[in-house]
Computed example of a mutant assay.
Amino acid sequence: METMLCLDDGCAFGLGAFETIAVENGRPCFLAEHLQRLEEALHFLRIACDHTMLQKRIQDELHCQKLPHHALKLMVSDRNIAVTIRPNPYPGSRRFTGIRLCISPVRRNETSPLTYRKTWNYGDSILEKRRAVQDGWDGCVFLNSRGEIAEEAVSNLFFLKDGQLFTPPETAGLLPGIIRGHLLRQFAVREVLLKEDDLSRFDGCFLTNSLCGLRPVARIGSYPFPLHPLRQFLRLHDITPARLAFGDAPASIG
């Protein structure tokens, strides 16, 4: 069904918030966490949301479609509540193969409050990811204005060294992802500021987002990462991409 949007500040200026949620066998994963982050973004944007209507729209979408492996998108602005469903672009079963990321020439603005919220101001991420794919990469990494590593275009980054996980802190200029938050609660992850030349120190790298769960990274720019240490770490802690994204905390509504 086509979604019609009212012309408001969301459409005109990007002053809206959205969430993208994995749906497995009809169940939205980490739904409570996504709704909380959406509510916080709307509060910052001073947008009132009819949460009862939003829940009903979510229920209607989930109940009227067969959703074995899909993505649920919630979009809210001053005059709009839109809920859409599409197939999850990441395969449900994946081989343990690493992806290749370039360094984007565009910088993340760590001084902007919009950087830390999932708003409709998402053009940099989409355009730079498309450019990277056109150039033969799988995605791109953003540095901030100080030259510190922030995040991948649509994902958070983690690095492995001698069995210890590292990730850039929020202050580097990144969106605090749902899966990122889950890993920070489950493991003793060290949040450290990193420059591009620090990448050579690590034994492995992976990225996380709500639709893919976890994806190994084989290279960032000129820095390669072996997959074997990461595979051992994930096996030791019984972490699988599917479990991380879909099996750990699925939620249902209604």
Rank of each mutant, 00 (worst) to 15 (best):
E148I: 10
K161D: 05
D203S: 14
S210A: 12
D248Y: 01
L5V: 12
Q232N: 13
Y116C: 00
L227D: 03
I253H: 03
T240S: 14
G14C: 04
C140V: 13
I21T: 01
R86G: 07
R107E: 02
H70A: 12
L193R: 12
T52L: 05
R79P: 09
E39S: 13
V106E: 00
R46F: 12
E128K: 05
P250I: 01
L62G: 10
Q36T: 12
R57A: 06
H70Y: 09
G177L: 07
I179S: 05
H63F: 10
R79D: 10
H237P: 02
T119L: 05
P224N: 02
G173L: 03
D78Q: 12
V141G: 09
L114R: 03
N156V: 04
A12L: 14
T97F: 10
P168F: 01
D238Q: 14
T84E: 15
L165M: 03
L174I: 11
A251E: 06
Q232E: 11
L244Q: 01
H69A: 07
R117D: 00
Q55M: 06
A22T: 07
S125R: 00
P229T: 03
W137I: 15
M75N: 07
G10S: 02
E2K: 10
K161H: 07
I99V: 14
N109H: 05
T52Y: 08
P229Q: 08
N121L: 12
C140M: 08
L5G: 05
K56M: 07
R107I: 01
K66S: 15
G247M: 03
